[in-house]
Design a protein around this nucleic acid. Structure first.
Lengths: 223, 223
DNA sequence: GTCTTCAATGACTAGGATACGCATAGTTGT
DNA sequence: ACAACTATGCGTATCCTAGTCATTGAAGAC
C-alpha cells in the first residue's frame, strides 16, 4: 500500500512517515504543495494524506486538482483545530475523511485502515486465500493454522499480493507499491523476495498459491 | 493509559494532574472547555475527566459532543455539591461516573481504576497473561506468585502492554500512551525500558512474554 | 509432427552492506 | 540513592546485489 503525505511541517511529516512505514506502508513525503499535486497526479497512490495549511499552494487546490483529474484515490485531510470551515470545504472538495491536529497516531492508523478497507471490497479485517490467512492488526500470517514468520519486506509483499488476488501483478506495480520505487532499478529484488515467500508459504505444500505469469509478473491464486 | 482532564481551576487541575502522573498515567490538562472538546475528539484517550462548571463551554456540551462523535471513552464528571440536577443530566448525557467537589484524591483514583477496568473487556480487575499478573488497584505485579518491583515508567509500560496483548505495538503508539509524547523524540528510551522490563520479567524464565517484532515494535504474548 | 537448439526469462544461492535492536555505561535531575 | 533518560558500541537479522543455474517456448532441422 503506497501513501503520499503532503505536509510542510518537517517534524510532523517525518513522524507520520515513520509511523506508517512501521506499519509497512510505502510512504512518500512531500513538503511542498505544488510538487505534491504533481506527485499525486503522476503516481497512483493508494491513499493521500494532505495538510490543508500549506505555504505554496492551498491544500484545497490539491484536492480539486486531483479530483479534476478523475483520480479516485481516497484522501485524508489534516486541519488545525480552528479551521472548521476549511474542513467542511475539504470534504466538499472530495476528501474522504479528516483529522484535526494534534492527533493520536493510533487514530490516524485506524482511519487509514478504514479508508483502505472501504476502497477495496470491504474486507473483514483479516485477509484470506485458501488456507492462508493474514491479519493486518497483529501482522500474523498462518497457513493451515501454522504460524509463518516473515520479515518486514516479505510481509509487505504478501499483503500487497493478498489485497489483489487473482490479478496479474507486474513487477513495476509491485515495485511501486511495496518498494516505493517509481522507476525500474534493473535489479531482481522482486524475484528474490517472491522466492523467499515461496519458500515460506508454498514449499512442501501440494497446493501452490504463488504463480508466475511468464513475461508479465506474479499472481496469488487458490487454483 | 492516557487521560484528559478538563478543569478550569488551575490549582485543582494541577493537583489532579500531579496525582495521576504519580500513578503513572499520561495526563493532558486543559483549562478551556471548547479546546478540551477538540482534544477529546482528536486524541484517543483512555479516560476523560470533565468539570461541569466551565466558563467557555458548559461541561454538558462536551459530553454531548463526545458521545455524538460515537466515542466510547469513559467519562468521569466533577460537580459541586449543590449541582445535583447537573449531575443527573451529566449521567444522562453519557457520563459514566461522577464525583462531587471537594473530593479525596484516593476516591478519584479508585473510580478511575474502576472505569478503566470496566472499559477494557470486563476484565476482572487484575490483568493476567500466562503466570504474569498485574493488579492496577494495588499496582502489584507478580510472576509465578513472586512479587516484582517496578519503577513508575516500567509499570506504565507494562500496563500498556498488558492492556493490549497479542497486538503489535509500534514505538509511536507506546510513546503516545506511556510517555505522552505526540512526536518522535529520536531516542531509544522505549528500547531501554523494554530491556529493563525484560530483565525483571523474562530473565531466567523459559517462557518469554515480551517479543520484539523487528522493524515494527513489540508485542506481549504467551506463546 | 517430432526433436534439437538457443535465447529469454525466471529461480535460486551466496555473500557483503546496512540498519536494527540489545546491552551497558554515562549523565541528569529529584 | 534512585529513577529517567541519553549515548555508544556491538552482534546479527534483514535487505539487496550479483552471479549461476533451471525452465520455458519459439524457431529451425530432420
Amino acid at each position: 500500500m503506497r501513501i503520499l503525505v503532503i505536509e510542510d511541517e518537517t517534524k510532523v511529516g517525518c513522524f507520520i512517515k515513520r509511523a506508517l512505514e512501521e506499519e509497512s506502508y510505502a510512504v512518500d513525503l512531500c513538503e511542498d504543495g505544488a510538487k505534491g499535486l504533481q506527485m499525486a497526479l503522476n503516481t497512483n497512490y493508494d491513499l493521500l494524506i494532505v495538510d490543508l495549511m500549506l505555504p505554496s499552494l492551498p491544500g484545497l487546490e490539491i484536492l480539486k486538482g486531483v479530483r479534476q483529474a478523475r483520480i479516485q484515490t481516497p484522501i485524508l485531510i489534516l486541519t488545525a483545530q480552528s479551521q472548521v470551515d476549511q474542513r467542511v470545504k475539504g470534504l466538499d472538495a472530495g476528501a474522504d475523511d479528516y483529522l484535526t491536529k494534534p492527533f493520536a497516531i493510533d487514530e490516524l492508523l485506524a482511519r487509514i485502515r478504514a479508508l483502505l478497507r472501504r476502497g477495496s471490497t470491504e474486507s473483514p479485517g483479516v485477509l484470506q486465500i485458501d488456507d492462508l490467512a493474514l491479519n493486518p492488526a497483529t501482522r500474523e500470517v498462518t497457513r493451515g493454522g501454522q504460524r509463518i514468520d516473515l520479515t518486514l519486506k516479505e510481509y509487505a509483499l504478501l499483503e500487497y499480493l493478498m489485497r489483489h488476488t487473482e490479478r496479474v501483478l507486474t513487477r513495476p506495480m509491485i515495485s511501486e507499491h511495496v518498494w516505493n520505487q517509481d522507476f525500474d532499478t534493473f535489479t531482481n529484488v522482486i524475484d528474490v523476495y517472491v522466492n523467499y515467500l515461496r519458500n515460506k508459504i508454498d514449499r512442501g505444500r501440494s497446493k501452490k498459491l504463488i504463480h508466475t505469469i511468464r513475461g508479465s509478473g506474479y499472481m496469488l491464486k487458490a487454483d
